[in-house]
Every structure is written in structure tokens, then in C-alpha cells.
Amino acid sequence: MPRPAGSAAGRLARKLWRIATANITIEAGIVLFLLVVAVAVFAPLIATHDPLDQDLFERLGTPSTEHWLGTDSFGRDIFSRIVFGARISLVIGLSAVLTAMVVGSFLGVLSGYLGGWVDQLVGQATNILLAFPSLILGLMVVAFLGPSMINLIAAIALATVPQFVRVARAPTVALRDRDYIQACRALGFSPLRTMLRHVLPNIWPEILVMATLWLATAIRVEASLAFIGLGVKPPTPTWGGMIREGFENILTSLWLAIFPSLAILVVVFALNLIGDGLRDALDPRLRKDE
């Protein structure tokens, strides 16, 4: 049997690597997603033009060697705007989902482990939030707080939190009566220690799968909000905003809406590949124990 050695960080890295290479679906998804991340990180190097540079003589230009994906109604380079738009989508999506993951998982574990009135309270609040589709909820929050990067993140996080509460609570309830969790109490561990050190490490695979799937949704919601004019304010390039602009000229310049839509499609597809692959890889019934 292999004997894992080294630091805790090293072991975690090894474990993540094993999961990341568990099947071809995850690998394909990760490669695709990392490609998008690389585009966002190195946007200034990849973009062929300044995404804000207007050239009123080149309005609504068709794809050419100068403007690979054409230009929009202000004569801005679509390719460069998509490249920079990746930053907005990823930053908002990742921040929102990370926030929701941390808050939601903690609340879910708390509610499942403690039960009683805590569970009632968290459960009711979760149900209320779940009653709204995430887009509608995000819409309400942004309409109320006004569109800004932070508010968008908050809105999407709020819409996603209940998903993590649910996915963390169910396995916690199942774990609560296991001997080794009961033993934590008998050993004099505080509820907080038991939850963080013993419950959470047992349920994080489920949470991870949820996070990748909801990252796709978060990016879609961000684009949808931008589409209806509640995204990050123009002229900052966002994919949703670009689709909207393209939509206004859809009868004459179809590519304006098509290319940013394709960008969203690629990201969502990559994340769903990862999520599906993870679900297979982490399913205990399919997991091969070493």
C-alpha cells in the first residue's frame, strides 16, 4: 500500500492531482477551463487591440485579418473585447461561488450537525431563497443595490448560497450519528472543531462537484444580468453586455451576438465537463480504493 508522506499541503496537492486526472471528462474540462483562465490572465498580451478603442470608421466591420471577429457598433475590436470580458466573467463567477461555497457549506454543516432551532432557521431561510430562480434573485438584489462589481458578486453569491447549504447539510445529517463523530463528543471536542476537522473533510467532494456546476450557472447569471443592463457598467467589456449590443444589430451583423455567446458556451461547457467528471470520480460507489 502506498504510504503518503510529506506535508499536509503536499498531500492535498497530490490528492487534487489524482482527482483532476481521474477521467478524460475532467481532464478535457480542466484543459478547456484553464485555457479560458489563461486568456483572462494574459488578456493584454493576447488582445490585438485596446478593447475600449473606438474606431468610428470601422463600425460593424465583418471579421477580417485586422479584426479577427469583426467590430461592434462603436468600431471596437470584438476579439479583444471577448478576451477582456473573460476577466469580468471569471472574477465575478469565481468570487461569487467561492463566497457562496464558504458561507453555504458552513451554514449547511452547522444546521445539519446542531439540528434543533438552528436547523429550522437555516432551513427556512434556505427554502425562501430557493423559491426564487437564481436569475430573479440576482436581479432583485442588483436592482436594489445598484449594479457594481461587488453588488453583482453579492447578488450571485446570495442566489447560490442555498445550493451549498443543501448539499452540505444532507451528508452532515447522515454523518452526525456515525460512531466517529459521536466519538468526537466523547473525546471532549467542541462542536466547532468536530464540524471543521471531522465533518467537513468527509463531505467536501460533494461540495466541490456542486461548486463547479454552480460556477457555470454563476457565469450565466452574470451574463444574463449584463444582458438586461444590470451588469458591470459599459464601456467595460462583458460577454452579456456584448450580446446585448449585438442583439440590437442582429439583423445586420449576426456575429456581434454569436461570438460572445460562443465564449459563454465554451466556459459553461468546460465547467459542466468538470462537474460531471467529478461526480463520476468521487462517487463512492464507483471509487476504487487504493
Partner: peptide, 25 residues
């Protein structure tokens, strides 16, 4: 107060060694 006694002053051994240990630690 009980948390300080449990495990330190009075400890317990469970019946089933297969389930009394955290599988991921």
C-alpha cells in the same frame, strides 16, 4: 465544563472499531 472532562478525565472506547475512526484522517 463537560468538554473538559470528556476525553481528559473520563474517556470512552466504542464497541465497533470499524466505524469509530474517522476514515479520512
Amino acid at each position: 465544563e463537560l468538554e473538559k472532562i470528556r476525553g481528559k478525565e473520563i474517556a470512552m472506547i466504542f464497541q465497533e472499531p470499524m466505524t469509530a475512526l474517522n476514515p479520512v484522517m
